[in-house]
């Protein structure tokens, strides 16, 4: 009882801070200095139509590299935590009732389409609201659908790690190429900037974001696969 009271007191205090923040907040009517710089320079410098993508992949590319590394670490830790001690092959013997006809047929129809949508989202990341992280999440949702249809389906861990490490290595290599052929690490202008708004524009951004998409998709998939393999027999 006393614990609930302390919790409510704490939340009340936090709520007071939030309401003070909310009441004292006046929305900007102009872009601030950083936002203005990105808005004015993205199109002519990098040729990317989606300014958020330009910030993530090029202006703050190093942060994205760190973000992908954090995801990789998470996938590795989840794999390490969940794989040790679990009886391999034990879960495979478990008999499950067949998933329904509708779910099976539906997933056979939808999985290729979802994969296609994921690839579309990350290839067009520099033109439309989308990109590597979103596309990767969509690809992982196809894997999730397969696992829902057949919980005992086993994906090849080797394939997932090969896709992940190769896309990560090429991502890094493109970043290093930027030091020699353009302005610096992860500069996208190692390829021609091209015409604003066309698919082959914005230098290396589509390539880098596609690789990020594959890498993120592989990492999310490996997390899902690791979780599904913990299923008790």
């Amino acid at each position: 009882m006393i614990k609930n009271f302390i919790v409510l007191l704490f939340l009340f205090g936090l709520g007071m801070i939030f309401s003070a923040l909310l009441l004292g907040y006046t929305p900007d009517s102009e872009l601030n200095l950083t936002g203005r710089y990105y808005a004015e320079h993205t199109a002519q410098d990098l040729g990317a139509a989606n300014i958020v993508t330009a910030i993530i992949v090029t202006y703050r590319g190093l942060d994205t590299l760190g973000e992908v590394t954090v995801l990789f670490l998470t996938a590795a830790i989840v794999g390490m935590l969940l794989s040790t001690g679990a009886g391999k092959g034990k879960s495979l013997q478990r008999k499950l009732s067949q998933s329904g006809e509708l779910l099976t047929t539906g997933s056979h129809l939808l999985v290729p389409l979802i994969l296609l949508l994921g690839a579309y989202v990350f290839i067009n990341g520099h033109l439309t609201p989308g990109g590597g992280f979103q596309g990767g999440a969509i690809i992982a949702s196809a894997i999730l659908l397969i696992l829902l249809t057949d919980p005992l389906y086993r994906f090849s861990h080797q394939l997932i790690s090969i896709v992940e490490s190769i896309s990560g290595l090429i991502f890094l290599a493109l970043g290093v190429l930027g030091i020699f052929f353009a302005g610096g690490f992860l500069d996208n202008r190692i390829l021609p900037v091209g015409e604003l708004g066309s698919l082959f524009s914005a230098g290396a951004i589509p390539i880098i974001y596609s690789l990020v998409g594959l890498k993120v998709g592989a990492e999310f998939s490996s997390m899902l696969v690791n979780f599904s393999e913990t299923e008790d027999s």
Partner: peptide, 11 residues
């Protein structure tokens, strides 16, 4: 968010 403006995508 700034009132009356649109998403940061050039088209």
């Amino acid at each position: 968010y700034i009132h009356g403006r649109t998403a940061p995508i050039l088209n």
